[in-house]
Amino acid sequence: MSEPSASAHTAVNAPAEVVYALVSDLPGMSRVAEEFERGTWLGGAREAAVGARFRGRNRRARRRWTTTATVTDADPGRRFAFEVVSVARIPVARWQYDIEPTDDGCRVEERTWDRRPSWFRPLTNLFTGVRDRAECNQRNIERTLGQLKAVAEAARG
């Protein structure tokens, strides 16, 4: 696989299973992810599993858009990943959370790969209001990991 277009990691003083539960649960994800507003499982899916699909509603300031994602990795306490397509089924991105248990909790790495075809990028940039998606995703990942850390550590008690 190619290098991600944005990535960051953080140490979390909470078990890997707690972090996995947050990133693989749609309401949990909406509590911590920077642009993800909410999601709905599709086709009878009720939880994260390889092949499960969900519709995500995303927002940035006043702009909102919808995508569809397919779960590609669902290894509790280890990895959660999904591939995103636009409403026209054009590839958009891959998002991946790798979770590694440590003595004090876990280390979480969030990465994304921009999958948009070159001709589609100007359209999505205009629609989302983002000129530099890699830079925006880098900031979003850093914020998301900070929020994930805070929520997971608070849940630990």
Rank of each mutant, 00 (worst) to 15 (best):
C106V: 02
T112I: 14
N58M: 14
V23S: 02
F120C: 00
F54W: 03
A52F: 00
R60P: 04
F82Y: 15
T70Q: 14
R115K: 13
Q96A: 08
T112P: 08
N58Q: 12
R131Q: 11
G77R: 05
T124R: 03
N140Y: 14
T128E: 12
A8D: 15
W119K: 01
V71A: 00
W95S: 07
S86E: 03
T10A: 13
T144E: 09
P122F: 04
L148S: 11
D103E: 15
R131M: 12
F80K: 09
A52S: 13
S118H: 10
R116L: 13
V151G: 11
R139V: 04
R62G: 09
V50C: 07
T112R: 12
S5F: 11
L26G: 14
G77F: 06
P117S: 00
N137S: 04
G157K: 03
T66M: 05
F36N: 09
W65H: 07
R57H: 15
M29H: 14
G146E: 08
E109I: 07
G77D: 10
T72V: 05
S30H: 09
Q147L: 13
E142D: 00
N140C: 11
G77I: 08
T112C: 14
G77L: 06
Q96E: 15
D104P: 06
E34L: 10
T144G: 15
A16T: 03
C136T: 12
Y97W: 10
T10R: 08
P27G: 00
R59L: 05
V84A: 03
W95C: 01
V18K: 11
R46C: 03
E37F: 04
R89Y: 04
G39W: 04
R79Y: 01
G56L: 00
T10S: 13
A6D: 07
P15D: 13
E35C: 04
D98L: 03
P76E: 11
W65T: 02
G157T: 11
A14H: 02
R89D: 11
F36A: 09
R57P: 05
A134K: 04
S7N: 06
A61V: 15
G157F: 10
E110R: 08
R107V: 15
G28Y: 05
